[in-house]
């Protein structure tokens, strides 16, 4: 019996060692040092699909859009910490803060063991540090354990590129890019669907506010203040029909956050209007409107003295 138990445990330990070794190496051998952005980049656009679709970095001098769809502030915080450590040239961070950004839906991408968590957890692997690792282990232990093979797969791929000296910043899966697409699909049913997706659960109940999102948003603000990096929050344009259906509670929480930080620039552009074919859907711009909006934002920030 002892022999059997010993061998089973030994086998499991060996398997665990093989699985975790690449992950630990990817996290702790500073693979992240390779995430060197082009030296001219001084402004970063960060956030989820809203700024990803709205801000065309080709039309905003010295900027880079690294937003990724459904990115929670938990990941944004660690992503910024990692990037800013190796890119001292960054002077300004523009972060998307929309009404849905503080919504409970974001808890799904971190705290629930579902497909979204699976996609997210290994996408951000290189920015993990022990804090994030322990945080995820605390809020979603089954998810982390179950996705260990996915972590290993992603780490092995990154490490092999790193060893071959072929790792470029675009190879890091957490680095996103502007969503360049002129497609338009605006209709009442699409708006209803997007409202339901952002603010309601599967049973159609209002999903509430995410304390986790708020907590990490405040951490981002504190961190960037300490680093003395200019910070701007943008609430990107949404279609008026979509705006009329946003739950009041989300708007109140958004306003509370704005009022809490009078020294930070919060730009609420939800009221900007565009022709119907300039909307990707009710909540996202397409590249036609993004071109106009990026120019608009650039001019405004220039006027405010945030960018040169």
């Amino acid at each position: 019996m002892k022999r059997f138990v010993f061998k089973v445990i030994l086998f499991l330990i060996l398997m665990l060692a093989f699985l975790t070794a690449p992950v630990m190496l990817a996290i702790f051998n500073n693979t992240i040092e390779q995430v060197k952005l082009p030296s001219h980049v001084q402004t970063l656009f960060v956030g989820d699909s809203h700024p990803q679709c709205a801000l065309n970095d080709k039309l905003f001098p010295n900027s880079l859009n690294i937003c990724r769809s459904a990115e929670s502030y938990v990941y944004t915080y660690y992503k910024l910490k990692a990037i800013l450590r190796v890119n001292p040239q960054i002077k300004t961070i523009i972060i998307g803060l929309s009404y849905h950004s503080v919504g409970g839906k974001y808890d799904y991408t971190v705290k629930k063991n579902n497909l979204q968590f699976k996609t997210m957890c290994y996408r951000y692997l290189p920015v993990y540090d022990s804090d994030l690792l322990f945080y995820l282990l605390r809020v979603n232990p089954v998810g982390v354990v179950q996705n260990l093979p996915a972590f290993t797969k992603k780490s092995t791929a990154l490490l092999s590129k790193d060893i071959l000296n072929r790792l470029k910043y675009r190879d890091f899966p957490f680095i996103g890019s502007f969503y360049d697409d002129t497609h338009s699909n605006l209709s009442d049913s699409v708006i209803t669907w997007t409202i339901s997706r952002q603010y309601h659960d599967e049973q159609g109940q209002y999903i509430g506010i995410s304390e986790m999102q708020k907590q990490y948003l405040f951490k981002i603000i504190r961190y960037l203040e300490e680093k003395q990096i200019a910070l701007v929050f943008v609430n990107t344009p949404v279609n008026e029909k979509y705006l009329s259906k946003v739950p009041e509670n989300n708007i109140t929480v958004y306003n509370d956050i704005v009022n809490r930080y009078p020294n930070i620039l919060f730009l609420n552009h939800t009221h900007l209007t565009y022709p119907d074919n300039y909307w990707r859907d009710g909540e996202h711009l397409n590249s036609l409107s993004a071109a106009l909006y990026t120019q608009y934002l650039y001019e405004q920030l220039k006027a405010e003295g945030v960018v040169e």
Binding site: L14, M15, F18, L19, L148, P149, T152
Partner: peptide
């Protein structure tokens, strides 16, 4: 080990 890795 290999079979376990293929499964994972």
């Amino acid at each position: 080990g290999i079979i376990t890795f293929i499964i994972l």
